[in-house]
Amino acid sequence: MAKKTVASLQKAESKNLTKAIKMVKSPVTGAYTFKEEIVTNDKVKEFFDN
């Protein structure tokens, strides 16, 4: 599955996309989970600020 994502990010029309991975702490258990999202380059800062 990861290979398919990487291959689709390398297309010419997709050059302005970034795969962002953020570590989020659960308020209930205290365990960390990872939130992954493919966002445009101008929205990366907003993704990490939220």
Rank of each mutant, 00 (worst) to 15 (best):
E46G: 02
K25M: 12
A2L: 10
V24E: 02
Y32S: 11
F48V: 06
A20V: 06
T5K: 14
A12W: 00
T40D: 06
E36A: 03
K11D: 14
S26Q: 02
T5E: 10
K45L: 13
T29I: 00
E36H: 13
K4F: 10
A7H: 03
T18H: 03
M23R: 15
F34C: 09
T33G: 15
A7M: 11
A31M: 09
K35V: 15
K3D: 15
K35Q: 14
V44F: 06
V24S: 04
E46F: 06
K43P: 00
V39K: 00
V39A: 06
E13L: 04
Q10W: 05
L17E: 08
A20W: 10
S14W: 01
K19Q: 11
Y32W: 12
A2Y: 14
K45A: 14
F34G: 00
T40M: 06
M1E: 13
V24K: 06
A2N: 15
V6E: 15
L9V: 02
P27H: 00
K25L: 07
M1A: 12
G30M: 10
V39T: 00
F48N: 01
E13S: 05
I38D: 04
K35T: 14
A31G: 11
I38V: 14
K45F: 02
T29E: 09
S14T: 07
K19W: 04
D49W: 10
V6A: 15
K15L: 14
S26R: 05
F34Y: 14
T33A: 13
K15Y: 03
K25R: 05
